[in-house]
């Protein structure tokens, strides 16, 4: 898709790059820090998919809502979650974004429209429909977005949500990030032979887009068209973003399902940060200095997370209810 870069201001371009670089460095750093054994639980890294989250979220305001997945760090950062509070959460610390009770898979910040990452595959899409019902009631132009993987598109909940969104004509947007794997199973097997994921959305009666989710400009342009459609009151829409995950399904995954040289190839050919440098028209040193600022931020986040206090046993009883 031809994209007029000049439709984005220099400032917006730098901001998009900063968000992608933040996700990348956040995840690369976690990949290292996990080896120290300090980080509890399962961690699913978003590296490789940055252009998808940022290409979508760069269009959004705080009023717009997203629901995310188990691989949610990128969505959180793209939507504007505080990186230091996220890092503390992933370390399970008391002053983490969710008080250390959620961890990597369960980060939320409703104030900025990040309604939650989710450990249950397929749980998010119906929730986005509900948020879209609320958006429609509120009469604003805001939208609700469900990020889902290629694996999640096989859950009945996702089908039900797409159908219901069409029936109710609500501003729900289904973003399918097709990274070609659900855990250790290939997309070509699990999604069957019906064609791509976008065509499933079309079969329910909504308009769907397809874009290169490893390219910021392609995703940004396609999502911009989609958003104009949805904000224009035409009901739900979907987009399938073809992308890659650079690490295992979770940290510790030996990735025996990958082909020879596959990881090197996708790093070489499908790195959205490299692509951005090649096509943004922004001088390399401007991007280099963003990289350096981001590196300092991530350092600060890790240092703060490590130093942050842990919870007391009594904290386990907090917040089960609003009142009881």
């Amino acid at each position: 898709m031809a994209f007029a870069h000049n439709s984005l201001s220099q400032e917006a371009l730098l901001d998009a790059y900063r968000r992608m670089a933040t996700i990348r460095q956040f995840e690369e750093r976690l990949h290292e820090e996990i080896k120290t054994g300090e980080i509890p639980g399962f961690t699913h890294l978003y590296c490789g998919q940055e252009a998808a989250a940022v290409g979508v979220c760069s269009h959004l305001d705080d009023e717009d809502m997203i629901v995310s997945t188990h691989r949610g760090h990128g969505h959180c950062i793209a939507k504007g979650c505080d990186v230091i509070a996220m890092m503390k959460e992933i370390y399970g610390k008391r002053d983490g974004l969710c008080k250390g009770r959620g961890g990597s898979m369960h980060i939320a910040d409703t104030k900025i429209g990040m309604l939650g990452a989710n450990g249950i595959v397929g749980a998010g899409a119906p929730q986005a429909v509900g948020a879209a019902i609320a958006a429609k009631m509120d009469g604003r132009r805001k939208v609700a977005i469900a990020f889902s993987g290629d694996g999640a598109c096989n859950q009945g909940t996702t089908f039900e949500a797409m159908n219901m969104a069409v029936v109710l004509k609500v501003p729900a947007i289904f973003v399918f990030e097709n990274n070609h794997y659900s855990e250790h199973t290939g997309y070509s097997y699990a999604v069957g032979t019906s064609g791509d994921i976008a065509s499933r959305a079309e079969a329910f009666g909504m308009k769907a887009w397809r874009a290169n989710g490893s390219d910021f400009f392609d995703t940004y342009a396609a999502f911009g068209d989609l958003l104009a459609h949805v904000r224009g009151g035409h009901g739900p829409a979907a987009i399938e973003l073809d992308t890659e995950r650079f690490y295992g399904h979770f940290e510790g995954d030996p990735q025996r399902y990958r082909g020879p040289g596959e990881l090197d190839r996708i790093r070489a050919e499908r790195d959205c940060l490299i692509a951005f440098r090649q096509s943004s028209g922004i001088a390399a040193d401007a991007l280099d200095s963003i990289d350096a600022e981001v590196a300092a931020l991530i350092d600060e986040a890790v240092t703060a997370a490590r130093a942050a206090p842990v919870s007391e046993p009594a904290h386990v009883l907090e917040d089960v209810y609003a009142d009881y």
Partner: peptide, 20 residues
């Protein structure tokens, strides 16, 4: 079940995993 063998539709093949 999901990934009871694992590796379906991948270059590594289905005998590569042995279940989650």
């Amino acid at each position: 079940g999901e990934d009871v063998a694992g590796g379906a539709g991948t270059a590594g093949g289905q005998e590569s995993i042995g279940g989650i």
